[in-house]
């Protein structure tokens, strides 16, 4: 797929405008409610090593949940599945994260926590742990029925036994949560992408998820 390159510097401005315009809506509807759910995700892993690109794709099973109390939240997500490339090489992909968050204002959630990614393939396995900081804006688009969220994050640090140096990791996410009226059922639908660089741009990894999760709201 061909695409145009956009100056990354405008993205924070877009995010800020989105946050400001949607700010009062965040207090409407149960967008901060605790929930838990399971679903599937279409996952792509593109790996660029020394100029050579290797692309894996497949379906991962995913589970996620949020515990929300007052202004605090704990978000957890887990995804696991087999990805294959054009040569039918299989890669076992596991990704887990747990982030604690705080809402300084009702419509923004600042999160921080570890994200662990593990890959297993015939040539070996590798685990990378990132420490990520996220800013997530949540807003009701159709009160009590549909809320949207948009966020960006970066990883200031990473740890891996297989990789000597970590350059950076940037990610973003957008999605919607649909609720079924008074029923404590929700559907979470979204897109997430992250890009990490290691060993002075010698190695790059891009992971994309298009996920769909069905869940229930807790404590409603």
């Amino acid at each position: 797929m061909s695409k145009r390159r956009v100056d990354p510097s405008i993205l924070p401005l877009v995010a800020l405008a989105t946050l400001l315009l949607s700010s009062p809506l965040a207090a409407q509807g149960p967008i901060h409610a605790s929930f838990a759910g399971f679903g599937v995700a279409g996952t792509n892993l593109d790996r660029l090593v020394a100029g050579a690109t290797q692309s894996f794709s497949g379906t991962t099973v995913t589970g996620e949940g949020r515990l929300s109390f007052w202004r605090l939240s704990l978000d957890a997500r887990y995804a696991e599945g087999d990805l294959t490339d054009d040569l039918d090489n299989t890669l076992r992909f596991v990704e887990a994260e747990a982030l604690i968050g705080i809402r300084p204002i009702p419509w923004i959630n600042l999160q921080f926590g570890p994200v662990v990614r593990k890959t297993e393939e015939s040539s070996g396995s590798g685990t990378v742990s990132f420490w990520e900081a996220r800013a997530l804006a949540e807003a009701a688009l159709i009160p009590t029925i549909v809320s949207g969220h948009f966020g960006m994050w970066f990883a200031p640090a990473a740890d891996s036994e297989d990789i000597d140096t970590f350059d950076n990791r940037l990610g973003a996410e957008a999605g919607l949560v649909l609720r079924a009226g008074r029923l404590p059922i929700l559907a979470h639908f979204g897109y997430r992408i992250s890009h990490a660089k290691f060993e002075q741009d010698f190695r790059e990894e891009t992971v994309q998820h298009l996920y769909f999760v069905l869940g229930i709201e807790l404590g409603r």
Partner: peptide, 12 residues
């Protein structure tokens, strides 16, 4: 705009 910002040019 997300993919254009985050991903490198040669990634689908």
């Amino acid at each position: 705009l997300l993919p254009s910002v985050v991903a490198p040019d040669d990634i689908d």
